[in-house]
């Protein structure tokens, strides 16, 4: 039986990568989904998916999203804040524009979406907010300073909203993906001197023996959206194939 039959979900950044897998998984479980992104309608979504071009860092665009949800569905049960960008720079290398771009989407966007949709979730008797954080919010990736910090913000906001809105029946959790093979991760390997060797080394550091797939994250989103996780709130779930459980120093790799 579909676990999210007749549930209404909003997913940001749903056009590709992890977001796209989340949209697909929610639809397969019976949910109706509104998703958004800054680009044009990918036009190849499964039926039951509504697309709206929107930049989550712009308050008016977020208000527009909630108007669409009200008109099309009348309520909302699930909010997935997945939209995110990364900028590969240290603090001195980062411009104010970098800060505004990255924090605008990764931090302010999550804030604006939650501010807009929490009243609607509460009105319907509650629901589940799922934010996409990162292992990089707990441990630093080199030369990703603003990205790492933005994800730590997401983790902190997740706990705050769980505490503030639990009494309204709203649960709020974050998922911290490790290395998920998306366009973003491929780009990281392309930067390596020897992309093949870099990939082999990275693989060897995963107790799972493989990188993550967008579906691994989507499956966790479905679980957090469903009643199966009814008592879980305020948590950050790491899904990384064991990467951060292992020591970074493994002499057998050298």
């Amino acid at each position: 039986m579909a676990r999210l039959e007749n549930k209404i979900a909003v997913v940001t950044g749903g056009s590709r990568g992890i977001g796209r897998a989340i949209v697909k998984a929610l639809v397969e479980e019976g949910a109706k989904v509104l998703t958004c992104g800054r680009g044009n309608d990918p036009a190849d979504f499964p039926s039951g998916v509504v697309w709206q071009t929107a930049d989550v860092s712009i308050p008016e665009a977020v208000e527009e999203l909630s108007r669409t949800v009200t008109e099309r569905f009348g309520r909302v049960d699930i909010l997935v804040n997945n939209a995110g960008i990364q900028i590969e720079k240290t603090v001195p290398d980062s411009s104010v524009e970098d800060w505004e771009n990255l924090m605008g989407i990764n931090a302010k966007g999550v804030f604006l979406m939650c501010r807009e949709f929490i009243p609607m979730l509460a009105e319907g008797g509650g629901g589940s907010i799922i934010n996409i954080g990162s292992i990089s919010g707990n441990h630093a990736d080199p030369a990703m300073a603003l990205y790492n910090a933005s994800k730590a913000f997401v983790h902190g906001l997740t706990r705050s909203m769980a505490v503030d809105h639990g009494h309204q029946g709203i649960r709020c959790n974050a998922i911290c993906p490790g290395w998920i093979m998306t366009e973003m991760a491929d780009a990281a390997f392309e930067m390596a001197k020897n992309p093949q060797a870099a990939k082999a080394d990275a693989l060897a550091r995963h107790p799972s023996g493989r990188f993550g797939r967008p579906e691994d994250i989507a499956n966790a989103v479905v679980w957090l959206a469903s009643n199966d996780s009814d008592f879980m709130t305020g948590q950050t779930l790491t899904i990384d194939g064991g990467l951060v459980s292992a020591s970074p120093l493994q002499p057998t790799l050298f």
Binding site: H139, A140, D141, A192, A198, D201, A202, L243, P248
Partner: peptide
Amino acid sequence: GLTAQVQQMRL
């Protein structure tokens, strides 16, 4: 600082 970082891939 070893455990402050994500695993250091040889990029």
